[in-house]
Write a protein that binds this DNA or RNA. Structure first.
Ligand code: SF4
Ligand code: SF4
Lengths: 137, 137
DNA sequence: GTTTAATAGGGTTAAAATAGTCCTATTTAA
DNA sequence: TTAAATAGGACTATTTTAACCCTATTAAAC
């Protein structure tokens, strides 16, 4: 259906939330979940993914939480998608060739792959910085 | 995961198959399924969707089957996606607002919608005609 | 007219992906 | 030492996608 996952949207909202709070401010998952309106448990998973990708940084222990891990003009929507959903696979053969029964005779692969790259380029064209400008401006 | 459905790929392959056979030639689902390598039953559903959208035309009864319903430069990949998967919804609120618990406070909707339109434009930029040229050429 | 090969389509089941929950360990400020 | 947070494994539920089954309808061929 070509729809983004909820987890991705959780992550994107979380990052823009962190961004409005500034680089220094440490924010707990609880605060974000309350403010944005998400399930705390699930958002927590998204944050862990973002942390692994270096997009968010974490502080453990009491008074801990999350901060941005990079400058907002160095993180694109594509980076967030990659962190949360893993490498994009517009077609199932992208995951593994044997996921498609007609792999060896398929003539669409080339087109599908360039299509995927174009979609990725669209996501990569928006940084968190420009997204915030678009939202606020 | 931003992946196209199998049904969509079935449909796209079927249309390009019909296109190589020319506008006049009537082709059965059985032939297409055998030639392309798909499940006959499932491809049949895809063809029914394509027919409803006017992309394919059907002939019933013995010696029946499917033909292209439009010229190959008048059908785009986006048309096929629309016929088979219905209206695109990059975000769940596109289906229905109450599918998203933070709909009223979400600031990403505008961006997500323009993103969806850009993706659609990518799909709409390729006609079956140009797809065939890309494949063969 | 009867048979036969095809589309049309409803309804059900199976499989896979996504979403959400639960529980425990670890970290660190107070 | 306690408490508040992240880290993450494991499990369950829900939703979506894929596949299958069965009957009706259509129309050519005989
Ligand atoms: S049909 Fe072609 S492009 Fe699609 S999954 Fe199979 S091999 Fe890949
Ligand atoms: S988070 Fe925003 S864009 Fe995404 S589904 Fe909810 S309302 Fe729509």
């Amino acid at each position: 259906m070509l729809q983004v996952s909820r987890k991705f949207e959780y992550g994107l909202h979380a990052v823009t939330y962190l961004a409005t709070k500034g680089l220094g401010r440490v924010v707990t998952v609880k605060e974000m979940a309350d403010e944005i309106g998400f399930s705390q448990e699930f958002l927590s998973k998204a944050m862990q993914s973002l942390k692994r990708a270096g997009i968010a940084a974490s502080v453990q222990g009491v008074k801990g939480g999350y901060t941005l891990g990079k400058a907002i003009d160095e993180v694109t929507v594509a980076d967030i998608a990659l962190a949360i959903e893993g490498k994009p696979h517009l077609v199932r053969c992208g995951v593994k060739a044997d996921r498609c029964e007609i792999f060896s005779s398929c003539h669409h692969r080339g087109y599908m792959n360039t299509l995927q790259h174009k979609i990725q380029a669209l996501l990569a064209a928006t940084t968190i910085h420009s997204l915030l400008k678009e939202i606020e401006g």
